[in-house]
Simulated scan of single mutants.
Amino acid sequence: MAKARDEFAGQPSQRQLRVGELVRKELSDILTRGQISDPDLDGVIVTVPEVRMSPDLRWADVLVMPMGGRDLNVVLTALKRNAKYLRGQVARRLTMKYTCELRFVADTRFDDDDLITRLLHEPSIRRDFADGGIDDDQGEDDRD
């Protein structure tokens, strides 16, 4: 008998999503209030769009992006330098058996979206759309 979870293999569980959102909210609040005394983070607005939790909830990949995308490497270095402090602040705010280790990663999803948009507007790709090279009804069965 197959496990009920096979169709969702590789996707985060409901618990991972819930804990990730709680950690994201707390980190956003800490960064918004400017509770970190680091000169590289003074006056920098950092957004935290997503936190991805490991299945055992011991690690959290925190996707961050400074407003406007400026000084990304400087901000990432400063956040990594202050990871222990931020972990302690999150631990005080959340009630969990273990507090997750924080790994800060640049959020490149907007850059990826721009790349896909540029690729779709290239002449060779637009020609495929105009020639009918891509069938929108592909995969649908005919029903009368």
Rank of each mutant, 00 (worst) to 15 (best):
T99N: 11
E140V: 09
L86F: 04
V19C: 05
R126N: 10
A4F: 11
R52V: 15
D61G: 03
P12D: 09
K84W: 08
I134D: 00
E26H: 00
D111V: 09
L94R: 07
K97V: 13
R118L: 13
G34N: 02
R103K: 14
D40Y: 01
I125F: 12
D137G: 06
D131S: 10
T32A: 10
R109M: 07
S13K: 10
K3V: 01
Q11H: 14
D113V: 11
P39R: 09
D56M: 04
Q89P: 01
V64N: 02
V74E: 04
D111G: 13
L72V: 14
F104P: 02
D71S: 13
F129W: 11
D42A: 12
R24P: 00
T117N: 07
D137E: 14
L79Q: 08
V64K: 02
D40G: 03
P49H: 02
M53G: 03
G88F: 00
L120E: 11
Q14F: 12
V64E: 07
L120Q: 12
P39V: 05
V48H: 00
S28G: 15
L72N: 01
G43L: 12
D6R: 09
V75R: 00
A60F: 04
G43W: 08
I116N: 11
A78V: 01
R58Y: 01
V74N: 00
R126E: 12
D40C: 00
R87A: 00
R70P: 09
D136L: 14
Q11T: 10
V75F: 03
P123E: 14
D111P: 06
P39S: 13
D114C: 13
P39M: 08
D141G: 05
S124W: 02
I36L: 09
A130D: 12
A130H: 08
D111C: 05
Q138S: 14
D144V: 12
D6V: 10
K84P: 00
G43E: 05
T108M: 10
M96H: 03
S54P: 06
K3C: 07
Q14A: 15
R18T: 10
R81N: 07
A9V: 03
P12S: 09
Y85I: 02
T77N: 09
D112R: 15
M67D: 06
K97I: 14
G139W: 04
E101Y: 11
V23F: 04
L17T: 03
M1K: 06
V105I: 15
G139D: 09
R126W: 03
D71A: 14
V62P: 09
G69D: 01
P12G: 13
V23I: 11
P55D: 06
H121C: 08
T117D: 15
L22H: 06
D112S: 12
I30R: 05
G69V: 01
D114T: 11
T95P: 02
D113L: 14
D61F: 04
E50P: 00
L115C: 07
D137T: 10
L22V: 01
T99K: 08
G133M: 13
P66C: 04
A4S: 13
T108S: 13
V19L: 08
L72D: 00
G139A: 08
N82F: 01
R87F: 01
M96W: 04
L27N: 04
E21L: 06
L119Y: 03
R143G: 06
V64H: 02
W59Q: 09
I45F: 15
L119R: 08
G68D: 03
F8T: 14
T47C: 06
A4I: 10
R127L: 13
M96L: 15
L22W: 03
L57E: 08
